[in-house]
């Protein structure tokens, strides 16, 4: 835990970390099934950070933050937040050859931005898999807005505005992912707003209860 903020006690932190671990394990296994490509998700990290420091935390992990490909998707349920899927600029071509396999679609002329569309579609599945498994375990439902996709863009501070206010804290989960034996590597950040702390605590309490 960074910043010495004690929103969660040690046991709750441990349980959250363990839940994320299980959720991402399930997500990786089922993703491999759904997209037919091997997926590795690294051990997830859990941090509670001030919203004003979020950018720095993301930049700590993502070295290519000034020019990256980004899929952003909001989700809402008892707890709400934003998911960011970030990977290096230039990998979008590999994404297309890896995921866009319907032969009849390959006659796109010069006219269509295939890369963006493929990133959106696959990003939506990657994000949906990880989020749904977490909320399954916490036994709460979640809905999504459609993804926004940018190619070769700088990850900017103002993306975070509007979802979070500066002095709030955010619960940040992140994991590294690798597709098809490291052909593409990137990061997934799930940033939950401060108001999701109470519902999370409640869900954890129910979980502890179920083992008594």
């Amino acid at each position: 835990m960074s910043d010495n903020v004690n929103f969660f006690n040690d046991e709750e932190t441990d349980a959250l970390q363990e839940l994320m671990n299980i959720a991402f394990g399930q997500a990786a296994a089922e993703l491999a099934e759904v997209i037919d490509i091997s997926v590795t998700l690294s051990f997830p990290k859990l941090n509670i950070v001030k919203v004003s420091d979020l950018m720095n935390h993301i930049a700590d992990d993502v070295k290519y933050i000034n020019k990256c490909n980004l899929v952003e998707q909001r989700y809402k349920g008892d707890t709400g937040g934003v998911a960011y899927l970030i990977f290096p600029h230039g990998t979008e071509k590999e994404f297309v050859s890896m995921f866009h396999m319907d032969e009849e679609d390959n006659d796109h002329e010069v006219f269509i931005d295939v890369e963006r569309e493929v990133l959106s579609e696959v990003g939506n599945i990657l994000i949906g898999a990880c989020i749904s498994k977490i909320f399954d375990l916490l036994k709460t439902n979640v809905t999504y807005t459609p993804p926004h996709t940018m190619i070769g863009h700088k990850f900017e501070n103002h993306f975070l505005k509007g979802c979070f206010t500066g002095e709030d804290y955010a619960i940040m989960l992140n994991t590294g992912f690798s597709l098809s034996e490291k052909t593409i590597e990137g990061y997934l950040f799930l940033v939950n707003c401060q108001s999701s702390i109470e519902p999370l605590k409640k869900a954890l309490a129910d979980l502890f209860e179920s083992y008594e």
Binding site: E18, N21, I22, F24, G25, Q26, A28, A29, A32, S38
Partner: peptide, 8 residues
């Protein structure tokens, strides 16, 4: 007993 449930 693990969270890493991949076939491999």
């Amino acid at each position: 007993l693990t969270a890493d449930i991949q076939k491999s």
